[in-house]
Design a protein around this nucleic acid. Sequence first.
DNA 1: TCGTATCTATCGCTGGGATG
DNA 2: CATCCCAGCGATAGATACGA
Length: 353
Amino acid sequence: KMQNEIIKPAKYFSEVEKSVLLALVEKYKYVLECKKSDARTIALKQRTWQALAHEYNSQPSVSLRDFKQLKKCWENIKARTKKIMAHERREKVKRSISPLINTHIVGKEKIASIMPEQMYFLQSPPEEDSEYQPDASSQGINYAVMMQVVLLCILLIFMLIQLHLTLRSFIKILQVTYGFSLTGCVKVLLQAQPPKFRCPLTSVYIHFSLLTPTIALELFQQSPRELCDEDKELVHFPVCEGTSQPEPSCSDVRIAADKNYRSKASQESALKKMHEEEHHQQMSILQLQLIQMNEVHVAKIQQIERECEMAEEEHRIKMEVLNKKKMYWERKLQTITKEWPVSSYNRPFPNSP
DNA sequence: TCGTATCTATCGCTGGGATG
DNA sequence: CATCCCAGCGATAGATACGA
């Protein structure tokens, strides 16, 4: 009975045990929290959990747990965190947060950061716009961002209808003014302005404030005065007010366009200026694309490094097992040679009666 | 290629036991 | 006794295998 009590692990995970588990899950989160479920990924997850359990059990001051227990514990932690953060969000909406709830789970932001796509809609809304920083380190498809893209596309279609543009002419404008395709434009828009994901309207209107003068000149031949009014209408869309700071360059262009189109005499110089600005825009977009590419490559290298670490760990475990086996057989061989030296090979077998 | 069956991981809920 | 935690269970979704 005593032995059983010693071997039997503590029923509850202590804070130390939880922090050890959390650190290990954080370490392997790219495998464990991967949403893919094909045979290869599932097998990899299984092996990773086993490796994690091995690593966990080799830590001091933790009781022995198998990987299923650890996995379940992590699921419970996730579920609790989600529940609490959802509750917090509801409370925040009601503007009455209990301080007790806030401190209930220590490091819940850390837990949430391991599974950002699961927590996106449960996180508390930002206090100030400047505080909102999307997790740049999170990899894979962010479904929330995908939703924003879909919304953005719907919004674009509505705006096209509003401006009496056909899709074909809109794409042509994009090609003429920016020199790249519609998809490229949306992509750059999203990549260039991550803090504005929560306010797609702002981004769209900033872009349109750039586009509108060109639209008028190149396609519709409207009077600059009319266009200026239209532009102003777009720029003063209520959602933009106080939600986020517009890009300085965009703002400059907008102001420049606004001023220049008020006078017919300065139209040509304004055009030139516009083209210059557009050129600058193109260059900055290219720069952003380069930065993005750079980031992708760095992330890829980090991912490979992590995979290397895991492979090394797996290799180390295998080597340990093999060495133990080797030692076992060597010992056995020693025992046999002691009992049965080569000189006395015709002696009867020791265990035989 | 499509439809169906089977398997498995994940998630949410809940009962039972431990704890204060 | 209320609360919390662990672990079991059922529902669901996605992957895979297989036959028509």
